[in-house]
């Protein structure tokens, strides 16, 4: 086990910034926890703490409901940098 732990220790980014609540409309805050295909990144990769992972999960799911974040991205539904596409 000890040998396999090659990546460095990660800290919760939201804890560092002392985020109290993550708003689903705040895409910049959500963005960090999304993969390239707009999946929710697991805690083991982002290093988020449980508290903030729960918050961000809820925010992402809400953002998906109101079409701010896509549910899926595949070859049929390719979206090029949708965060910048405001208009």
């Amino acid at each position: 086990m000890a040998e396999r732990r090659k990546f460095k220790k990660r800290y919760c980014r939201y804890c560092e910034q002392k985020v109290e609540f993550i708003d689903y409309k705040d895409l910049d805050a959500i963005r960090f926890s999304l993969s390239e295909r707009y999946k929710i990144m697991p805690r083991r990769l982002t290093g988020n703490c449980k508290k903030h992972q729960d918050m961000v999960t809820e925010a992402i799911k809400r953002a998906r409901q109101v079409a701010l974040v896509p549910y899926i991205v595949d070859r049929k539904r390719v979206i090029e940098n949708p965060f910048e596409l405001i208009k």
Binding site: V66, A67, R77
Partner: peptide
């Protein structure tokens, strides 16, 4: 008023929408 934005996925065949909170 968030204004006219691009939707992340089509809704009722619309690609954009006017957001208000």
């Amino acid at each position: 008023t968030m204004g006219m934005r691009r939707l992340a996925y089509p809704v009722q065949k619309h690609e954009r929408g006017y957001y208000t909170v």
